[in-house]
Design a protein around this nucleic acid. Structure first.
Lengths: 195, 195
DNA sequence: GTCTATATTTCGATAGAC
DNA sequence: GTCTATCGAAATATAGAC
């Protein structure tokens, strides 16, 4: 009799095998990097073999893409608030301010992207070039928009960098800080930059 | 007759083969990532074969290490100004302010590190664990120093992140901005954060 | 100092049994 | 849904000629 496709973890939540694969892959991709993580390693941690992964995903890149989609979603939401007009410091400030909570709640996914930029670019290059309308592309558009004063654009980029710095560049330094408190500190930082 | 070990480039500067290898590797490691860059590729661009690289470097990791040392140097200088006392916002500000010019003058090396963090951690893990006293380690120490108020530490991390954001997160957006002007804008940003 | 040739390993992926 | 077995490709690295 084949093993069930879903298990029950310590807190009683039902987790599909597919999601368990993604969780393990997420941790490994962050810790060792996408390229240096082998499918064999992922499978062994989960207690089955490499080949079994191919029932759930078409390829290794498919796993990375599935993780990418998690970021893609709240990317959309935030970017809609920007629209196509010239972005002002105020609008940028409002967006980043909202994003801080989302970034705190999804640290791992952001960390994954920060630490595997090359792998994601490769993925986008191969994935049929369908207008990869993700956060990175939208940000580049804003930072290159000559309708906005250069000084303002640099401040916008710096504000996002400041949040990323407070979250990740610090390593594990702020890992024990309550997210609410850390969120307030980061919002204070971007307020200094953008107001 | 074997080819000479040094060539003369367009501006008349003498460049050793070793340095030419490092220059090509730097570009490829940034563009495609360390793992996805093969020695074959590096060698072909330089006009010789993979095996020839092993005359100049012991291994692929050795090439990465050689590039890493370039960062290590001005890391030391900046970190000496911090010492072992509790770091104040003022001291941090002075250090970052000085570093902006160095970072602008060495964009590529910083970008290499930002985009290949996993590879560098692997290198450090294997390289005998000799107290890898680099910038990253020193920063983590500062950000974890409980003698300093948490709010100040987050601001320090954010300030460094702001500079990184202005330099790299923007992609190619600010590539044409004169370095002096971009430096002023970044120094203005960190002043907002740290004063 | 650069070459050819090859050893060795590891990985992603497929086929087919159960 | 997971297994065993295997393939083919590509990579790092080595040995030795020139």
């Amino acid at each position: 009799m084949p093993r069930a496709t879903a298990t029950i973890d310590e807190v009683g939540a039902v987790t599909s095998t597919r999601d368990r694969i993604l969780d393990v892959a997420l941790d490994l991709f962050i810790e060792k990097g996408y390229d240096k993580t082998s499918l064999r390693e992922i499978a062994e941690i989960l207690g089955f073999t490499k080949a079994a992964l191919y029932y759930h995903f078409e390829s290794k890149g498919d796993i990375l893409m599935a993780l990418h989609l998690r970021l893609h979603e709240f990317g959309r939401e935030a970017l809609l608030t920007l629209g196509t007009d010239a972005v002002t410091l105020e609008r940028w400030h409002a967006m980043i301010d909202d994003m801080v909570d989302q970034m705190l709640a999804n640290r791992k996914i952001f960390l994954l992207h920060e630490r595997n930029q090359a792998a994601f670019e490769d993925l986008h290059r191969k994935e049929h070039e369908e207008d990869h309308d993700d956060m990175h592309a939208a940000f580049s558009r804003v930072f290159s928009d000559s309708r906005v004063a250069l000084g303002d654009r640099v401040r916008m980029a710096s504000a996002f960098g400041a949040v990323m710095g407070g979250l990740f560049l610090s390593g594990e330094a702020f890992i024990d800080v309550p997210t609410e408190q850390l969120g307030d500190l980061l919002r204070d930082a971007i307020r200094r930059l953008l107001v």
